[in-house]
Lab assay of single mutants.
Amino acid sequence: MSIQHFRVALIPFFAAFCLPVFAHPETLVKVKDAEDQLGARVGYIELDLNSGKILESFRPEERFPMMSTFKVLLCGAVLSRVDAGQEQLGRRIHYSQNDLVEYSPVTEKHLTDGMTVRELCSAAITMSDNTAANLLLTTIGGPKELTAFLHNMGDHVTRLDRWEPELNEAIPNDERDTTMPAAMATTLRKLLTGELLTLASRQQLIDWMEADKVAGPLLRSALPAGWFIADKSGAGERGSRGIIAALGPDGKPSRIVVIYTTGSQATMDERNRQIAEIGASLIKHW
Rank of each mutant, 00 (worst) to 15 (best):
H24D: 09
H24G: 07
E26A: 14
T27R: 02
L28W: 15
V29W: 00
V31M: 02
K32P: 05
D33Q: 01
D33A: 01
D36F: 02
A40K: 14
A40Q: 02
R41F: 15
V42P: 05
G43A: 04
I45Y: 00
L49A: 10
N50A: 12
G52H: 13
I54G: 05
L55M: 15
F58Q: 00
F58V: 00
E61F: 05
P65N: 01
M66P: 07
M67P: 01
T69P: 08
T69V: 07
V72F: 14
A77C: 00
A77W: 00
V78F: 14
L79Y: 15
R81M: 01
V82F: 15
V82P: 07
D83I: 01
A84R: 04
G85Y: 10
Q86K: 06
Q88D: 05
L89Q: 02
L89T: 10
L89A: 13
H94K: 07
H94G: 07
Y95S: 01
Y95M: 07
S96H: 01
D99L: 13
V101P: 08
E102R: 05
P105H: 02
K109V: 11
K109N: 06
L111K: 09
T112R: 13
T112E: 14
T112N: 00
D113C: 00
M115R: 08
R118I: 03
E119I: 09
L120E: 15
L120H: 00
A123C: 15
A123T: 15
T126G: 03
T131N: 06
A133Y: 03
A133P: 06
L135Q: 13
I140R: 10
G142W: 08
K144A: 09
E145T: 07
E145Q: 09
L146M: 02
T147Q: 09
T147V: 03
A148G: 13
F149P: 14
L150K: 14
H151I: 08
N152I: 09
M153T: 10
M153Y: 11
D155F: 15
T158S: 05
T158Q: 04
R159M: 00
R162P: 04
W163L: 11
E164M: 00
E164V: 01
A170K: 11
N173P: 08
D174N: 01
E175I: 12
E175A: 12
D177L: 09
T178G: 12
T179N: 08
T179A: 09
T179S: 10
M180T: 12
M180P: 07
P181W: 00
P181R: 01
A182P: 08
A183Y: 06
A183L: 10
A183P: 09
A183S: 06
M184R: 13
M184N: 07
A185S: 02
T186V: 11
L188K: 01
R189G: 11
T193I: 09
T198S: 11
S201C: 13
Q203A: 07
Q203S: 12
Q204C: 03
M209R: 01
A211T: 05
D212H: 12
G216R: 07
L218W: 11
L218C: 15
R220Q: 02
R220C: 07
A222M: 03
L223Q: 14
G226N: 07
A230E: 15
S233R: 08
G234V: 02
G234M: 08
A235D: 02
G236H: 01
E237S: 09
R238A: 04
R241G: 09
R241I: 07
I244R: 03
A245P: 05
A246V: 07
A246Q: 04
L247C: 13
G248Q: 03
G251H: 05
G251Y: 05
S254Y: 09
I256Q: 08
V257H: 03
V258N: 05
Y260A: 04
Q265G: 09
Q265D: 03
A266Q: 07
E270R: 11
E270V: 09
E270H: 14
R271I: 09
R271S: 04
Q274A: 07
G279C: 05
A280H: 10
L282Q: 04
